[in-house]
């Protein structure tokens, strides 16, 4: 693992015999992701990293599209949130937990809190105007480029749902995936240290 990380640019050669491709043959020569890449599973893959780099912006834009088009077409806050979180999961799979942390806009707990806050605010805001809880209101305006655009209060509510879904998935991923990965690494380090000590003690003087 450590050799792969250090020689990220140079693919390793001749490590394994009997006709199999050398370890790390898939590793890219360019830097495609924002951190020193250490994938969650298996070796680095140029295909995965390039695809991640190119796809993530598209996926995120698509998730926003799903969110705003939800009230006329299939989509909505829940589906949009799932798509957006899939983008982060892809990033994690390709680049490991450091990459995930680098890509997160804020901590998952903060996302959850923000989402709950937005949803609560939308729920309670109508009370201030004498309406009942969660009563919807919509405004249609004509914008220069987009033409007639409708803004409805349930879009805000859906945004809250969107944020909560992203927060949920990210916290599960960072708990189950990233934290487990960190633990495994820790255990590995501890083991490596104990074996080294053992060798030193038992070795020739």
């Amino acid at each position: 693992m450590s050799t792969r990380e250090e020689n990220g640019r140079e693919p390793q050669r001749g490590a394994v015999g009997d006709g199999a491709p050398p370890e790390g043959w898939e590793a890219p020569r360019e830097r495609w992701l924002s951190t020193v890449v250490r994938p969650a599973f298996g070796p680095r893959s140029v295909l995965l990293e390039v695809a991640t780099r190119l796809l993530i912006p598209t996926i995120l834009v698509f998730s926003v599209f799903l969110l705003v088009s939800g009230h006329d077409q299939p989509g909505g806050g829940f589906a949009g949130g799932l798509v957006a979180s899939l983008a982060y999961v892809l990033r994690y799979v390709a680049g490991g937990r450091r990459e995930l942390a680098a890509g997160m806009p804020m901590r998952p707990e903060a996302l959850l809190a923000l989402g709950l806050l937005v949803a609560c605010a939308t729920a309670v805001a109508p009370l201030l105007f004498g309406a009942s809880v969660l009563e919807a209101a919509s405004v249609t305006v004509t914008l220069p480029v987009f033409g007639k655009v409708k803004f409805a209060s349930f879009l805000l509510f859906e945004t809250g749902v969107f944020l909560i879904v992203v927060g949920l998935v990210l916290s599960v991923v960072s708990a189950l995936g990233a934290r487990m990965e960190a633990e495994e690494e820790e255990v590995r380090i501890v083991r490596a240290r104990t074996t080294r000590f053992g060798r030193m003690r038992g070795g020739p003087r």
């Binding site: 939800g70 009230h71 006329d72 077409q73 919807a136 409708k150 349930f154 509510f157 749902v161």
Partner: peptide
Amino acid sequence: EAGGDNLVNMILAD
């Protein structure tokens, strides 16, 4: 009346 065509979503969000 509420301003949406997607029935599922209107039920969920409104």
